[in-house]
Design a protein around this nucleic acid. Sequence first.
RNA 1: GCGCCCAUGGCUCAGCUGGAUAGAGCGACGGUUUGCGGUACCGUAGGUCGCAGGUUCGAGUCCUGCUGGGCGCACCA
Length: 552
Amino acid sequence: MKTAIKKIIHDALEKAQQAGELELSSFPDIVVENPKDEKMGDFSTNVAMTLARSERKSPKVIAESVARYLKNGELSQAEIAGPGFINIKMSQEFFLERLRNAVAQGEDFGQSDAGQGTKVLIEFVSANPTGPLHVGHGRGAAVGDALARILKKSGYDLSAEYYINDVGNQMNFLGRSTWLRYRELLGERIEFPEDHYRGEYIKDIAGQIIDLKGDEFINKPEDECIPFFRKFAKDNILEGIKKDLSEFRVTFDNWFSEESLYEDKSVEKAVEWLRGEGHIYEKDGAVWLKSSAFDDDKDRVIVKQTGERTYFCSDIAYHQNKINRGFKKLINLMGADHHGYVPRMAAVLEAMGYDKNIFKILLVQFVSLLRAGEKVSMSTRSGEFETLADVVSEVGVDAARYFFLMRSSDTHLDFDLELAKKETPDNPVFYIQYAHARICSIFRTAEENGVAWDRSADVDLSRLIEEEEFAIIRAILAFPEIVEKSAKALEVHRTSHYLLDLVSRFHGYYSRHRVVSDDKSLTLARLFLLDALRITIRNGFELMGISSPEKM
RNA sequence: GCGCCCAUGGCUCAGCUGGAUAGAGCGACGGUUUGCGGUACCGUAGGUCGCAGGUUCGAGUCCUGCUGGGCGCACCA
């Protein structure tokens, strides 16, 4: 919508130039905004102020000149205000025409080609398969999944990926923990080590092994047992993670195994390549990457003294692999506690000769779980913590997703379980869903009163004359911009704030104006507006992965 | 010590690439309904945007320093 306005302003500038009123040695970037107060107009621009210097004229003089040439069929008014803002009011037809388009687009309303089919890979969650997902992962999952939906809607060719760290020491610890629990369950007295995985789920897995294999491992040496226990536990946990995510409506296009990078020698090749480029040296029996040459604070070990490769080492190969698959932009979501990893990874990409701007790491800050204002303790040490599955089963997928998405992901999040469950307006998910259900209920009433609703029928929208109605229309028409900006800024919370604002306008309108009445053409016009609103709420919630119930 | 994130009414947070009188929700107080879902609506009170400088026509927004809080600083992942 704003691009249409920009064009109108641009045309006006050209006319002013032709008339010799403006020099315009270079055309400025035209910024169109919504005025603070809706009474001032539908749009405003500050071009006159930005041009003041190069034109050597006061903003007001320029504004007057531009306003004179702004006359256009769709424009009903152009006013100069404050230090030189030009406030523009558009004709009602301008909005109604676009409202018709929105309804015609239906599910596609909000879609754009802003991404121009750029291949983008978004990697998120990627939790180690050593235990169930907890609340922190849940936030990453919700944000990553919503971003994926938003980027797709904005015309990016998007792939969502989960990187499975199925190699390394933690896998051995996992295998060993399970093996120890297995023996314990079979009656042996075990001193369970502090640094092993102590969660209850390990006992469950050990129990399953007993159900399946009985005591066949009991007299075998550790070396012979661990590979089986490691794989069994990993597969079992991974399956659980997949189940949790799918129940949370989070989908991945690809599950990428770290182990596969060793199997096809990618890791080796990546290291050799870096060595060939002179980015690698040996010291104290280990192999180091000269990451400090690329803005990291120190060099990093990629092959340990023991000959084992570090996690960082396979990550190099992994990111090279991503680029080789043709992705032009790589987005990684990580927990805030991993932020030390950012410069290191950027250094690698730079060393490999890629533009570091293709790589974007999004840090998702911590979640504090509250219960009626009181902090719920999350102790990972004991292995007992609030899992994502627990939270989802307590508050439901819709509320959980909304809460994870309602705040900017770079601020700490207080997630109040009691609030999330409430069916009152303090709970924003409910407030929005209620509006949708209420709209659907109005359509049901209309039908009972003999007003059949047909989306494709021709409706006389000139019956919409209330200022409140146009305020809602303007808000609806802003939706595509919200999506596009969310995609560009990689910020999901804009959508949740937008929906809240949109819906509160509706509730106010509803309480003052009757939709279904004896006046049939007015009823139809208002139903048309509500249909557009319903579409927008659904599409917005769809981007967040939240359902829009027709009844509650 | 070094680095990243945060700091906006009592609480939880918005504030788009710097723009007009800093906005919501909750809480507090006071109102609203013979009709479409009152699970709603309307109003009132409440802010030196952590502090101090700087950049500019203009700063909550950008820069520097400081304070406070969170998180990191492994041949762990």
